[in-house]
Design a protein around this nucleic acid. Structure first.
Ligand code: FES
Ligand code: FES
Lengths: 167, 167
DNA sequence: GGAGAAAAAGACTTTAAAATCTTTTATTAT
DNA sequence: ATAATAAAAGATTTTAAAGTCTTTTTCTCC
């Protein structure tokens, strides 16, 4: 019936979204932040410090880009850091208790869960776009999960081998 | 407990995602394509033609950008068009029956529903990231809805005043 | 206090999406 | 035929995210 495949010669046409950017509900920055914070929570208990080098290599995240993200987490008090030799990042009292939604607000801003799937001006149940009901329920499920889960929850899953931070 | 608000002076730091790009599950291109195709399905019955001018003004979409998107829909047979005075875009046999997922594949590619929320290499239930189960169910709900709904379904909703294509 | 290590900071580059602007082609009407 | 109109095509610019590179600051150890 309908042939969905792209015609082969696309050079003169609209360029399409590139493969690894598809369906990005969240920024890469958020993924990096979440994975790095969880890594520190898992491997940096009892004040053990994790260096940027180790973090970026273990998680396969660009070193300096991760550096900026980590700075930002430290500024927001999610983690602590110390400079100098034998310095690095380590968990503080707040780390484990941080809900994922807070990380998301830091990296992607506070309006993340208020946007219309079709980019209509405002997402609004009284003036819904055609995808609103489907999208809103999907989105609200994520919001609920990310409000309920903390870094400690993820760290526990990682330690039990139920989920993974890399590859 | 935790203070989520951004510190005020961000100038020297990471730049955050800008407001109207937050939480973009789909590209703007997809939103434009879906709204325009549905508009044509609603207002262009019986071979009535809709010009780019009217489309872009009615839907508040940049004229030439929409032009490229429409070209692409025509190329894929979702709509037909005719040049010249009294030309424009109009619905064909396929228009109404097109499932939304097909539009999405045209604008955002075919891998849209296979990406990990955290940008881990591959989304995989056997090797899940910490957000996999929450995200996969959300994503699968959208996939299901978008496979089931056609442009005709949206057009009917619009005509009944149950949903809206603009503002 | 000097050397080395590591985070912090800042400047810069790259990439892709989105948007704009210009030219060409096809169609209609005079 | 010619002019007008509108889609098609294309080249170019803008914007934001992502990524890279360099310099500065802070800390440790000798
Ligand atoms: S209005 Fe579009 S998702 Fe809510
Ligand atoms: S592995 Fe991350 S969403 Fe599936």
């Amino acid at each position: 019936m309908s042939n969905i495949s792209h015609p082969t010669d696309c050079s003169h046409r609209l360029r399409f979204r590139q493969v690894d950017y598809f369906c990005a509900m969240f920024s890469k920055t958020f993924g990096y932040a979440l994975r790095a914070a969880t890594f520190v929570a898992v491997h940096g208990k009892n004040g053990e410090k994790i260096g940027l080098q180790e973090l970026s290599q273990s998680l396969d995240i660009p070193h300096h880009f991760l550096g900026k993200i980590m700075q930002d987490l430290v500024r927001h008090g999610i983690l602590d850091s110390i400079k100098g030799p034998s310095g690095g990042f380590y968990a503080n009292e707040q780390t484990a208790e941080t809900p994922l939604i807070e990380l998301l607000k830091i990296t992607d801003g506070s309006l993340v869960f208020n946007q219309c799937a079709l980019n209509i001006k405002r997402c609004n149940a009284e003036h819904p776009c055609p995808l609103h009901h489907d999208f809103a329920s999907c989105r609200d499920g994520m919001l609920k999960a990310m409000s309920a889960k903390t870094i400690a929850v993820l760290a526990a899953e990682i330690e039990e081998g139920k989920s993974f931070l890399v590859r």
